[in-house]
Nucleic acid binder design. Structure first.
Lengths: 165, 165
DNA sequence: ATATACCTGAGTCATTTACTTGGTTATATA
DNA sequence: TATATAACCAAGTAAATGACTCAGGTATAT
């Protein structure tokens, strides 16, 4: 079982989509800047998210991605599953073939754990995250980091008009 | 966060110790045969388990390892922690420095998940696993695989007298 | 026509896993 | 006291994975 940056990025990006859903299609470039995720890496992740019908895309200028369902019908477990194979703590993929074709000593324990985690993440929708005050606060911080002129740092990048509210 | 073979092996080996606690110190060679885990790999894992004071060792012939506490005072979470750094779903180690020194959009979510998993595994003692009928059944199967003469296969390995009940 | 932004595949570098190899040291027993 | 047992220890290694970059393509609004 693994839950690494890959799954975290995917959920973060999907949550960014949900938070900015009013502004039409959201470009990966925008997500990349707000969330500090490599654009190319995002493209790879969104390829999988699109295959799993969690997002739909609009090509061309002004294009980007949209959630393919309402935010209260998309759950964190689905997102992690889409990019990360599965949230499974067993070595046998739940098949019970972990010790010479039969189950190993700890098979039941890892099954229970997998179930526990999956139920937890299946109960959390993007909408429920969007509704949280603490998450709204973080979102506002990230958006203002984006729109405010950077004071220090290297060459200032051009900010596209469409990315401004 | 990761839960891989390493953590599973550690818990399996500790459970083997708990199940066979009556037979004096348990050798890693015995665990290796019963659970099909590489002996050298077990040695590495037990080095960490010993550092974390979960087991104590007896050297020399007839030696092996013992649980350093009663089985109802050792919890799965401790074992995984001992070999696996930690069961933490955040990227910042819970410190809240995941986005430019501040928290990232999904920080709270991964904190909640980490807490969930940790509470679950902290509630499961080795004693509670030993008490489970399904686990007892697996244990008996593994012990009889061990003591019965293998019918097919390669060269039969010598079974040391001390490893028999 | 051009710029935007999605889409794709290949390659890379570092890290981790799950081992193996080759020893040393302590101790019970013959 | 020699020997076998079994804990200890350090180093190396092959394969997999993660988190990217690079270098192109293709669709479309302006």
């Amino acid at each position: 079982m693994r839950l690494t940056t890959k799954g975290r990025y995917a959920v973060t990006a999907m949550l960014d989509l949900a938070l900015n859903a009013d502004n039409g299609p959201i470009s990966l470039a925008g997500i990349s800047k707000r969330q500090e995720i490599s654009l190319s890496y995002l493209e790879q992740l969104f390829s999988k998210l699109r295959q799993n019908e969690l997002v739909s895309s609009v090509r061309g200028p002004g294009g980007g991605y949209r959630l393919s369902r309402a935010a209260d019908e998309i759950f964190v477990a689905e997102i992690v599953d889409a990019v990360n194979e599965s949230i499974d703590a067993t070595s046998c993929g739940g098949e019970g073939s972990c010790h010479k074709g039969d189950i190993c000593l700890t098979h039941h324990l890892w099954c229970d754990l997998s179930k526990q985690i999956h139920e937890f993440l299946s109960g959390i929708s993007l909408a429920s995250l969007v509704a949280r005050k603490d998450i709204q606060a973080v979102s506002e911080r990230l958006n203002s980091e984006q729109t405010e002129a950077p004071l220090a740092g290297q060459q200032q990048e051009r900010i596209s008009a469409s990315s401004l509210a």
